[in-house]
Amino acid sequence: MLENPKVSVIVPVYKAEAYLYRCVDSLLVQTFTNFEILLIDDGSPDRSGEICDEYARKDTRVRVFHKENGGVSSARQCGLDNAVGEYTIHADPDDWVEPDMLEELYIKAIESGADMLICDFFVNAGNKQIYCNQKPTVLDHERVMCELFQHLHGSCCNKLIKRACYNIYNVKFPENFSFCEDLYTNVSLLKNNIKIAYISNAYYHYVQDINLNSIVKTYSIHDFEYCKMLLKKFSKLTSGTSCFDLCVCNMSYLIVSRAFKANIFTSVEFKNKCGKYRKNMLAYECRNSLFMYALNLSCIGYYKIVYSFFVIIKKIYKVLI
């Protein structure tokens, strides 16, 4: 174990044997060397745990923790509980990073005295790579909190965060969250007027199309209930803040849009289940106005017709819905 590492990189690992090597290798070749990697084997049934142990034997900067499967949120918290770095950042096992990421983020964080340093990132889908600008409008904690429900990504993977903040403000990753756990945690931190900085470079490569076990690839009635739970949790978290209305709009949109894409409800079921979120959803600032119009029609009883139309549009124009 490296003594007094400046940065702790937390990697939750589950069914990742196909791409874990690329992720960890990209971390081990960092130009900045004073860091530790915490690989959290979340009860993975494949060879992921063995691969983690293999790295720990080769490099003293790698620490491995094997735990019973508890989901990504519990894995992130396990990493946080065992981290010793001054700053923490997360990396998902199907993604990878640029070699100068930790060096440039750490230097900027020290220069600015930031509690949270935000950077841009890449989205990699197949052969395409998209640059995603994450510059906040204003470096104010409430403004950034609001923008996490608008155009900023809620991920922990493009944010270097001072580890002490979690303890000072008693912030933990939420239990039983299978997604949006990072958004919830970042909002919890930002409620406490922490100091924010931004660096206008992208270092993290977020892969959209490799992990077939990802929550976004499957959907059931349980996922619908889960999204309803998210609305309640986030509403409570943001109650009394300036971003409460944005939060409710965003989470209502999430409920309806995920149900739309899943295609598991009849038109009547969709209206009964999603119609109650229609009013709040319509306040959501969505660039795809055609899609918003489709969601609106679906909520009032035309789901199957509208969904069939969108499937045709998707095939012809190869658009994502």
Rank of each mutant, 00 (worst) to 15 (best):
G71N: 08
G71T: 06
S73A: 10
S73I: 03
A75Y: 01
A75D: 01
R76T: 08
R76M: 12
R76A: 14
Q77P: 02
G79T: 06
G79C: 05
D81Y: 12
N82P: 05
A83I: 03
E86D: 09
Y87C: 02
Y87D: 02
T88S: 01
I89R: 03
I89V: 15
I89H: 00
H90D: 15
D92A: 10
D92I: 01
D92L: 06
D92W: 01
P93F: 08
D95A: 11
D95Q: 10
D95T: 14
W96H: 06
W96T: 05
E98M: 05
E98Q: 08
D100N: 10
M101G: 10
E103I: 00
E104T: 08
E104L: 08
L105S: 02
L105I: 09
Y106Q: 01
Y106P: 05
I107D: 15
I107W: 13
K108H: 14
K108R: 15
K108E: 12
K108F: 10
K108W: 08
A109N: 02
A109S: 04
I110Y: 11
E111H: 09
E111M: 12
G113E: 02
A114D: 06
D115G: 03
D115I: 04
D115C: 07
M116R: 05
M116N: 05
M116E: 04
M116S: 02
M116H: 05
L117P: 04
L117Y: 03
I118R: 00
C119H: 09
C119A: 08
D120N: 15
F121E: 09
F121Y: 14
F122E: 13
F122D: 06
V123N: 13
N124H: 12
G126R: 02
G126I: 07
G126T: 13
N127R: 06
N127M: 13
K128L: 11
K128W: 14
K128N: 14
I130G: 01
Y131C: 12
Y131W: 02
